[in-house]
Amino acid sequence: MQISGISITGSLFLIIGIIMYKGLPYISWEMISQSPKGGFYIGKGGGIFNAILGSLYLAGLSTVLATLIGIPIALYLNMYIKQGSFLEKSSKLLFDVLFGIPSIVYGAIAFSIMVWLGIRASLLGGVITITLLTIPIVVRTIDELLLTVPVDLKNVTKSLGATTWETAKVLIKYIKPGIFTAILLAFGRAIGDVAGVLLTTGFSDNLPKYIDEPAATLPLAIFFQLSSPIPEVQGRAYASALVLTLIILIIVICTHILASKQKKHKI
């Protein structure tokens, strides 16, 4: 127990330590606030602001969409179809499978849908892909949360004459702190994914302005910089990784603060 605890915390600090050690020397205000200038990837000036913004847009939009689609699905599976039925069991199994499919497969599927619809590699394409990728995360997490709701609570609202939807609203309230965790998981997966965006989002040195244009993302920027033989550029890859880690850290902290404020009425 202790050993596993130490090794988990230890490897976490090791990862962050390596990123800081390798990345900190290369981090600068210019790097965070500017788009790449010509030749950025061979060691010239500019920064990764385009990728930061692109990733925030992509992950933000996808997470919002996945939450808006995923929560009703989870509620439907738990409250509107008879529990224990074939439909319920097979749907939940389906989402388990979807949860486990690697993101490159989502990328490939979304890519073929985009070809069919005539959408080119763009922020929109990325949002579609990452939304598909994160819906199962939201559904499965919310589903688990709903299973923890005491039967008595459902019986309370029902016996007051509440409809299924009115009961569902109370359950949402009850699991609210957990919903933040679900959103966080989805966001973390969304902002860190490479394979899903590789084919569908493209890359651009410009700031993302339009949803139907290619957009840069942080994971891809890191990938490109790491593949460079120039030490300077490789260093910047670690600096970019540090920025990505910081963004996730900020989101985690904000989520915790929001979640603890919501705990007020929790039983």
């Binding site: 609202t157 009425h265 039983i267």
Partner: peptide, 21 residues
């Protein structure tokens, strides 16, 4: 069903306040 349940108040084994004021 909702109409039927409205006619009956249920007091369960343990008190179960709704997550609100």
């Amino acid at each position: 069903v909702t109409h039927i349940r409205k006619k009956m108040g249920l007091l369960s084994q343990r008190p179960f306040p709704l997550p609100m004021s």
